[in-house]
């Protein structure tokens, strides 16, 4: 089972990213679940979502303690949350940032999802939409295939710019 923990802030689309990722994995013919952890948080508060991908039906509902991959959609969350908590040996980190981030020895990848969203003018109510672009980056890291990632995006969003954003992230991430 491959376990992914997504750190973001309420309203940034972390939950939708989790859903898209699960859908893409299912389109790859795998089993997947996505689970936001809901507290009493509101827009702007740090939130966590989980995605599990496996070749067998998934029967685990508890929170992910030992992620294979940590995805950080908002680096400011790192000031208040220990994003590397429980990281599995060999685990990787994907960060939405313009520069490389050192992650205590865990392989870390950066991609400027915010920049891509702004470039594609994917902004809703002042918030750049990161959740479709990030799928391209995850595809580049081999979590899902790019084909399934695009399929999942198209199933959930009619706006073509979402696919363009994912393609841009795929191209820009140096894996």
């Amino acid at each position: 089972m491959y376990e992914i923990r997504i750190h973001s802030r309420g309203g940034q689309g972390g939950v939708t990213a989790a859903r898209l990722l699960a859908l893409a994995a299912i389109r790859d013919g795998k089993y997947a679940t996505a689970c936001p952890f809901y507290g009493a948080e509101r827009r702007g508060a740090p939130v966590v979502s989980y995605v599990r991908i496996d070749d067998h039906p998934i029967r685990v509902y508890s929170q992910i303690r030992h992620p294979d991959l940590v995805l950080i959609l908002d680096t400011s969350v790192m000031d208040v949350v220990d994003v590397l908590n429980g990281m599995k040996p060999g685990g990787r980190v994907l960060v939405n940032a313009t520069d490389h981030r050192e992650m205590k020895g865990f392989p870390s990848f950066s991609v400027d999802l915010t920049g891509i969203a702004l470039r594609e003018n994917l902004v809703v109510a002042g918030n750049p939409i990161l959740n479709t672009a990030v799928l391209g980056a995850l595809a580049k890291m081999g979590i899902v295939t790019m084909e399934s990632a695009k399929m999942a995006i198209q199933e959930m969003f009619s706006d073509k710019r979402n696919v363009t954003a994912a393609e841009a992230a795929y191209a820009e991430l140096v894996a």
Partner: peptide, 12 residues
């Protein structure tokens, strides 16, 4: 169905 654990979890 269990609150959040199922109501808000996304499965196939």
């Amino acid at each position: 169905l269990d609150g959040f654990l199922l109501s808000h979890s996304m499965h196939p």
